[in-house]
Design a protein around this nucleic acid. Structure first.
Lengths: 165, 165
DNA sequence: TCATTAGTTCATTTTAGATTGAACTTAATG
DNA sequence: CATTAAGTTCAATCTAAAATGAACTAATGA
């Protein structure tokens, strides 16, 4: 695999770290994204990333649970292959929205314990309301994407040439 | 400080950890949220949380940079006090939206390096478009909150009693 | 000016989490 | 039924980030 791709894979590792996943998860995803094969075997990945079997095993499970990759098995071949999953993209983000609710609930609990009903309490109430509200709104936005995505993508690139492959 | 509050403070630490900040940042925020004083001194916090000066110093800086708390100084008192900041809540979330752009850009870069223009490539293009689009939409949602929050809160609790303090 | 107090800095220690690697399980094949 | 190959599991190791605590700086005021 060429140097540019390897650099990209490492960058993807750092991006995934920012997103709260492990660096290795980003590497595996990045590897599959730029791999010249449709899907890569467990061992292709392990070799390509110079990692241990244990690490690949755990990371593959992590990415599978997150819905980002999926295993593929082929008849007459005992190996497991992996490829990037075509799972609905909105669901990946939706799963993260629980954090908004968690934060909002945490603030509510704090407000009950707080003795003073002062300016700060008012502000905390507002922050809690915001996160609760914005979580719902983002969920709506995701739904809009799901029903309208074809039109949205068209609007974004109205003059895009049709690709002949 | 009573046991319930201490439990709450620890919980808040865990919530903040989920949000990508440190546990101690959550503790400090939680402490200020349930403190019976309007603002707490550096040393109130340090004692309340049984932490070192160094830790409080670093954490206070972190929370100040994030816009979650603000220092207060009083005339004739050399101590620094902290209280929860009334910064616009939308900005805290907006700061996180750069991640969406980062992820979208990362995917675009991967698409350039990818040799096959297959189904997976199409999907990656869609994921990238989604994160770019949804980031903008969330920004719009935040703007809506900022201009409409009074109405939004009213709609949520239409029969709320007016509080006489 | 000197003593005291408040907070910062940073080298060291601690802790949590990621990675390894060897032993193990499972399943296919001769 | 033994052999081999593919993955998984988990205890040990490694790494990076967080917390400590002692030395330091800055600022007040006796």
């Amino acid at each position: 695999m060429d140097k540019e791709k390897l650099t990209y894979i490492e960058e993807t590792g750092l991006v995934f770290e920012q997103l709260g996943m492990t660096r290795m998860a980003g590497r595996v995803f990045g590897f599959l994204a730029v791999s010249d094969k449709e899907e890569a075997s467990f061992d292709d990945i392990r070799e390509g990333l110079n990692a241990s079997k244990g690490s690949i095993s755990g990371t593959a499970k992590q990415l599978k649970n997150a819905g980002l990759i999926e295993p593929v098995s082929l008849p007459g071949d005992r190996k497991t292959y992996y490829r990037i999953s075509k799972m609905e993209v909105g669901n990946i983000l939706r799963a993260r929205l629980t954090l908004f609710k968690t934060f909002s609930d945490n603030l509510e609990k704090g407000l009950i314990l707080r003795e003073k009903n002062d300016e700060i309490a008012g502000w905390l109430r507002e922050v809690s309301a915001f996160y609760s509200w914005v979580g719902d709104k983002i969920s709506d936005v995701i739904s809009t994407w799901e029903t309208e995505k074809k039109n949205i993508i068209k609007e974004k690139n109205p003059h895009e040439k049709i690709r002949h492959t």
